[in-house]
């Protein structure tokens, strides 16, 4: 049994230590907001935070997540309501199919936590690891800029 702390809740899971966190979250804990996209860390659909750092849950093992604070899309909104990024996402109608958006939001949240006022280049560079096949990049970028402005 492995102890994991996800969105401030304790979970005991019967997972082998090498099991990727994405499947621990989705199949064992039942938090399916974190999406599977590629399994090789190439698309960003599964991004979650470990102690505030963005990681790809498909190439992060359960053992690596043990002892760390895991935050998923389900825990992105805080006690005071939506994250500024979630509000901005809705303001610009960023999603199309929406499938990659949890990973996009988690990556963007990690970016803003570290760089509250990112330049265009910093946004592009931080987000280039997240694929959106619908091609919502322009609106995702606009939403990140709105959220960054809101943080002023």
């Amino acid at each position: 049994m492995l102890d994991l702390r996800v969105n401030d809740a304790a979970h005991q899971v019967d997972a082998p230590p090498e099991m990727p966190l994405v499947w621990v979250l989705r199949d064992l804990i039942g938090l399916r907001g974190t999406k599977f996209g590629c399994g090789i860390g190439a698309c960003g659909a599964c991004i979650v935070h470990l102690d505030g750092q963005a990681v790809r849950a498909c190439i992060t093992t359960a053992a690596e997540a043990h002892g760390k604070a895991i935050t998923t899309i389900e825990g992105l909104a805080g006690a005071h309501g939506d994250h500024s990024l979630q509000r901005a996402w809705k303001q610009v109608n960023a999603p199309q199919c929406g499938y990659c958006q949890p990973g996009q939001l988690m990556q963007a949240a990690a970016l803003l936590a570290q760089t509250p006022k990112p330049t265009d280049e910093q946004i592009t560079s931080a987000m280039a690891g997240n694929i959106c096949r619908c091609g919502a990049y322009q609106r995702i970028k606009a939403a990140i800029k709105i959220a960054a402005g809101e943080a002023e």
């Binding site: 399916r32 974190t34 999406k35 599977f36 899309i73 992105l76 996402w89």
Partner: peptide
């Protein structure tokens, strides 16, 4: 589905 999508609550086939 916008609000569900940004909260990870939207249900796709894989979910």
């Amino acid at each position: 589905d916008l609000d569900d999508i940004v909260h990870g609550k939207a249900v796709y086939g894989i979910d």
